[in-house]
Design a protein around this nucleic acid. Structure first.
Length: 422
RNA sequence: GCCCCCAUCGACUAGCGGUCCAGGUCGCGGCCCUUUCAAGGCCGUAGCACGGGUUCGAAUCCCGUUGGGGGCACCA
């Protein structure tokens, strides 16, 4: 039978990275097996907020590259079918009415178990499972009733979800057995927590896909990182692109123990992906990111500045801090200019006449200048760097000057020289 | 309280009875390179939670303890 899995988010707010990780495992499994990955919205109403959340969920999935098969479905559309099944269960004596609600009779003896693909055999004593409410007194089916039914109706073969659903599983298995359908294969993947072992939340850092996007992470890096949270192909390989992940992913190698989200490692990995991008592609991503985040900087200039920072940043969001001096005024801290007066003045003279105006000529002439003043390169170039870029940390100085242009460089050098002179 | 899950360096993990005085990656420390910051190169740091078994032999299997986590709704 062809594999069919699903992601079933409830449309409340933005897509949480933990849910994305679970979705990723579903998606990787489906693609690896040549099966289908479905998207099912577990909504209980049809408000405007729901519609917006659905849009955001889809946008986030698309950004990450997780495509789903067929149209997405809504749980709400199946409420009548759920109620019909509840009535049948009632008629068959498998359920009973209780204060206007309909409850399912769970077995009281023995146990309900399943062979979990990531945990092995799990067995829950039936006496600890209470009679599940199928339909509320207001007529709405409950999650633990609707969800397994939908899995049956959708032909879901493998239910891959977070471990917080382990305790729901025996309830759902009993429901599915009661309607005489086949029990899907279950795989409960470990949770993702913050550095303190607690549920990953805002105070740990970014948690929604939108936030990671805004922070300047690449979707391919995020996917690679997420895949490695609870899964590893061999313990050696860490950088894997989409095709390789699909090719190597198996549920059997998903670890049963929870993982902590390590933002430092994500940053490192994102840097790896950033550096490996062809320069024009890197520039392209920057232009898009800047546009999405309210910078109306000239795309041509961004493209020319991009190569100067590609090796230096780990996230696209670091670009403005690193290369902002190309796009606007600069205000050097006088403290960083102290004692740099002579070098700044000499540099001004040198830059004014250097020909051709390119990085290597500028470097040569500035080194000559430093030499003439008896200064070591690092002492000589620091005030120049601060004058030109406004910071002690910047892209390569000579390339930066070349791109900035002679006129603007001279202006900044002169301004800094007068500050340094006091 | 009850039920369930989990347990290898600070983190992510490899390891599925001998090839492990435990390997890779991030982080961290040092050195090199160097116009700053990065990147890169080299070296290093650090771990099988504890106690019992089983076995010729255990990080690997079993039991217990401890410690984490999840769940016990007419939420999803």
């Amino acid at each position: 039978m062809a594999v069919r899995v699903r992601m079933a988010p409830s449309p409340t707010g933005l897509l949480h990275i933990g849910n994305v990780r679970t979705a990723l495992f579903n998606w990787l499994y489906a693609r690896h097996e040549g099966g289908e990955f479905r998207l099912r919205i577990e909504n209980t109403d049809t408000s405007r907020e729901v519609a917006e959340a659905v849009d955001q969920i889809q946008e986030s999935l698309r950004w990450l590259g997780l495509d789903w098969d067929g149209p997405h479905t809504f749980q709400l559309d199946r409420m009548d079918d759920c109620r019909r099944v509840a009535d049948e269960l009632l008629a068959a004596g498998r359920a009973y009415e209780d204060e206007g609600a309909i409850r399912f009779r769970m077995p009281n003896e023995g146990s309900t178990g399943w062979d979990d693909v990531v945990r092995g055999r799990v067995e829950i004593p039936n006496e600890t499972i209470e009679d599940l409410v199928l339909v509320r007194s207001d007529g709405r089916p409950t999650y633990n009733f609707a969800s397994p039914l939908e899995d049956v109706w959708d032909g879901i073969t493998h239910v891959i979800r977070g471990e917080d659903h382990i305790s729901n599983t025996p309830k759902q298995i009993n429901i599915i057995e009661a309607v005489g359908a086949e029990i899907p294969v279950y795989a409960h993947v470990p949770n993702v927590s913050g550095a303190d072992g607690k549920k990953l939340s805002k105070r740990h850092g970014a948690v929604t896909v939108d936030e990671f996007r805004k922070d300047g992470y690449l979707p391919e890096a995020l996917m690679n990182f997420l895949a490695l949270l609870g899964w590893a192909p061999d313990g050696e390989t860490t950088i894997m692109r989409q095709e390789e992940l699909i090719e190597r992913f198996t549920l059997g190698r998903v670890s049963p123990s929870p993982a902590q989200f390590d933002y430092q490692k994500l940053d490192w990995m994102n840097g790896v992906y950033l550096r490996e991008l062809p320069p024009d592609e890197f520039a392209h991503r920057l232009v898009i990111w800047l546009g999405e985040n309210g910078y109306d900087w000239d795309a041509e200039l961004v493209t020319r500045a991009a190569p100067l920072v590609q090796e230096k940043i780990a996230r696209l969001a670091e670009f403005p801090g690193f290369a902002g001096f190309f796009f606007g005024e600069v205000e050097p801290d006088p403290v960083d200019l102290e004692g740099g007066g002579p070098m700044l003045e000499s540099a001004h003279t040198a830059v004014a006449s250097v020909e051709p105006f390119d990085a290597s000529s500028i470097e040569w002439v500035l080194r000559q200048t430093a030499d003439g003043l008896g200064l070591k390169p690092r002492q000589a170039f620091q005030p120049v760097r601060v004058a030109v870029t406004g910071s002690k940390v910047s892209p390569g100085l000579f390339e930066s000057i070349e791109l900035l242009g002679r006129e603007e460089t001279l202006t900044r050098l002169q301004a800094a020289a007068s500050v340094a002179a006091g």
